[in-house]
Structures are given as C-alpha cells and as structure tokens.
C-alpha cells in the first residue's frame, strides 16, 4: 500500500492580503507533517486547500494513492478531515450522521457503527445535544470513516479533555500504521513520527 501527499508553491490571497506564500511539503505512509503558526497565519487555509475545499491562488497539489494520482474531487472524498468548522446535522443522532456519510462514501453501515465505537460516544445521542468535546470526538469518528490513508487535522485536540486527547492520540497512532497525517496547530504539539515541520509566519 502507498499514499503520498505532496504540494509546492502554494500561495493564497484574499483580496490584497497574502495569507500563504510559496508553501511546500510532503508526507507519506507512517509520517506526520506538522504545521504551526500564530492565529491568522494560514494553517486552516492551507489544510482547506489541501483538502480541496478551497482553491489555491497558485501552486500544485498531488495526492497519490496506490501509485494513482487522484484529481481534486477524488482527493476530497478519499481523505479524513478534522477541523473546528466541521459540523454535522443537529437533528440526526451520532450514528445516523455517520451512517449517512458512510452511505455517501459507499461504505456499509457497519463502518459507521465501528467509527462510533472507536470514539466512545453514545450512538443515539443527537448531535445538537453533544458538548464541544463530544463533537470533537465525533469529528474524529467522521474523519476515520472508511479508514482513509490521509488525515488532515486542524487543531485535532481542541476542546478535548484529558481522556479525549489520549483517545485522539491513540487513534492517530493507529492511523499512522497504515496512513499519514498533516496536523495544524497554533502551538507546537508533541506528535509521533513527525517527518517535517512547517512554520507559517503569516
């Protein structure tokens, strides 16, 4: 199995404001690419661009899975993403939310049930009733649906209590056995298997 994300010359402007300037990096199976920088330095923007949720002003992104180059649409659907702005449906339960997204990704309902079990949430709780820490656990479960090879994690331990952070770190460790991750955080996190660090000056 192989998966490799590489990007180079990534720049992004919002009007006249330059948020990212010629950012480059790469990550493959078993590795973490850590992105740090102050608030507003463009970490979330970089991850959104890598996820295919936002176009870059310039630059190239390549994601190869099993030696096949995926286009941006395929890349979007083949990765896991945790970010503060990722929300699920308040009128659906935890398991209904995950089963819905599992069906969209062509996965069986058991994949959703498995993901819920991994993060220790009550399946029948409504998303709208979850605390911010529980919502973060659910984001992890959502990201791990179908066990994608690439995880893009924007402030992955935000709002988690000690047990939640330990769980998230364990999930990341397990993921790195067969996958890779880009992790963005305003502080320098202690992370396993960091292959490269990018500091965004903003």
């Amino acid at each position: 199995m192989s998966a490799r994300l590489s990007f180079s010359g990534i720049s992004r402007r919002f009007g006249r404001k330059r948020v990212l300037e010629q950012v480059a990096g790469a990550v493959e199976i078993g590795q973490v690419l850590a992105v740090s920088g102050a608030n507003g330095s463009g970490k979330s923007t970089l991850l959104r661009i890598l996820a295919g949720l936002m176009p870059a002003s310039s630059g190239t992104i390549e994601y190869r899975l099993e030696d096949r180059l995926l286009d941006s649409g395929e890349r979007r659907r083949a990765l896991g993403y945790v970010a503060p702005d990722l929300a699920l449906y308040e009128s659906l339960t935890v398991v209904e939310n995950l089963r819905f997204f599992a069906r969209l990704r062509g996965l069986p309902a058991s994949a959703a049930d498995d993901a819920v079990a991994r993060v220790g949430l009550a399946p029948e709780a409504f998303y709208g009733t979850l605390s911010s820490g529980q919502r973060q656990r659910l984001r992890w479960a959502w990201a791990l649906l179908g066990r994608p090879r690439l995880l893009l994690l924007d402030e992955p331990f935000q709002n988690l209590d000690a047990a939640g952070e330990a769980l998230a770190r364990r999930l990341l460790d397990e993921h790195l056995e067969n996958g890779c991750a880009v992790v963005a955080s305003p502080i320098t996190l202690e992370l396993p298997k960091v292959h490269e660090r990018i500091h965004l000056a903003g």
């Binding site: 996820a51 929300a87 699920l88 969209l104």
Partner: peptide, 13 residues
C-alpha cells in the same frame, strides 16, 4: 448556515 457543507463537500458526489 449550519456549516455542514464542509462535511458534505468531502463526502458527496
């Protein structure tokens, strides 16, 4: 409005 579009964009065709 509810920010569910991000998850939807990442999963739906």
């Amino acid at each position: 409005e509810t920010h569910t579009s991000t998850a939807l964009r990442l999963a739906a065709s």
